[in-house]
């Protein structure tokens, strides 16, 4: 680190200001010469993740943070049915999650996953087994988001992930090596 006192001494010279300005330019010239290896792809990926995600995805993240901040876990009581032939089940809105863990995962129906007030962790673990995928939680709080959802087993993993992403608080990504990342 340059010692400021040295530079103060330099400024004491009769032409100190000019000399200091020249010193600053010399520093610039040295810095300008310095070669740095830059991984442009990496910088782009960092940038894209932070800025180029559409507003509704970011809104979802904000909504998730807000919900977690308040500390109220309200089960997302929205039934999304993947198969249009089956009628969508309606349920009462805004019902708070029960305090005790009641995860009813019924896989008895052959062609549907039915998750009733299950945590995101449970949902993803079941999907992982079915699709032979890996699950990674980037944000530990997101594990406990509770969902009511039905997923057709005939969907591809990509489609299932997209379906879950419709939930305000859920933000999933599917990587090339079949890992579901929950943020």
């Amino acid at each position: 680190m340059i010692n400021p006192q040295d530079m103060k001494d330099l400024l004491q010279e009769p032409d100190g200001k000019e000399l200091y300005q020249m010193a600053a330019e010399t520093k610039k010239a040295f810095a300008h010469e310095q070669e740095t290896e830059i991984d442009v792809e990496h910088e782009w990926n960092k940038f894209a993740a932070r800025h180029t995600t559409p507003w509704y995805v970011r809104y979802r993240a904000i909504a998730a943070c807000a919900a977690l901040f308040v500390g109220v876990t309200i089960a997302a009581i929205v039934h999304i049915t993947a198969t249009p032939t089956k009628p969508t089940q309606q349920s009462e809105d805004g019902k708070p999650a029960p305090t005790e863990q009641t995860q009813q995962v019924s896989t008895s129906e052959q062609e549907m996953f039915v998750f009733d007030n299950a945590t995101l962790k449970t949902v993803l673990m079941n999907l992982a087994v079915h699709y032979n995928a890996e699950v990674e939680f980037r944000n530990s709080k997101s594990r406990n988001i509770r969902l009511h959802v039905q997923i057709d087993k005939g969907l591809s993993l990509q489609e299932a992930v997209e379906l879950l992403n419709h939930f305000d608080k859920v933000n999933l990504k599917l990587t090339d090596n079949n890992t579901i990342i929950a943020e």
Partner: peptide, 16 residues
């Protein structure tokens, strides 16, 4: 645009 100019702009910023 990002990928073509990043290194150049970084150099400019670093010199300052």
């Amino acid at each position: 645009l990002f990928k073509n100019n990043y290194a150049l702009l970084y150099k400019l910023a670093f010199s300052m």
